[in-house]
């Protein structure tokens, strides 16, 4: 049913993503799909990584661990954004194309007032990509 799952992750808050990560891993096992973990980083140093290359290595390592944990094939895809706070939506939608995913599984935040002004990542992906989108409430 699904061949490639795209799993956008916020590495910095990976400890809060348990539910979404479990859902991703188990879905992949059920459908025999590959999971591609995608992360967005700025080109400037952040609390997690001092260079984009270092971020990519961490994401790769994270993908490997998830693969071992759930017994599925995994890969990683790092997006280097000029302005992550604003451009993430667009860049995630582009990543769906680049990776060739047919399902997106991601954690979502509780809806609040700001959603009227800025659509959430999940909502934007559903509107701007061909893949199915599954949002996991934390």
């Amino acid at each position: 049913m699904f061949k490639k799952i795209l799993a956008p992750v916020d590495l910095y808050h990976a400890d809060k993503l348990d539910k979404a990560l479990t859902a991703t891993g188990e879905l992949a096992r059920v459908y025999g799909a590959e999971v591609c973990y995608v992360g967005v980083t700025g080109s400037t140093p952040s609390e997690l990584a001092r260079t984009p290359e270092q971020y990519a290595r961490k994401l790769k390592e994270f993908a490997r661990e998830q693969g071992e944990k759930f017994g599925v094939t995994t890969s990683s895809h790092t997006i280097v954004s000029h302005d992550p706070a604003v451009q993430m939506n667009h860049e995630l939608a582009a990543a769906v194309e680049d990776v060739g995913a047919d399902l997106i599984v991601m954690a979502t935040h509780p809806p609040d007032v700001t959603d009227y002004l800025w659509s959430g990542n999940g909502a934007h992906l559903a509107a701007h990509s061909d893949a199915s989108v599954m949002l996991i409430r934390g």
Partner: peptide, 11 residues
């Protein structure tokens, strides 16, 4: 503090 991904309302 040098972060470029702070919440948008801030800018």
């Amino acid at each position: 503090g040098g972060k470029i991904d702070a919440p948008v309302p801030q800018r």
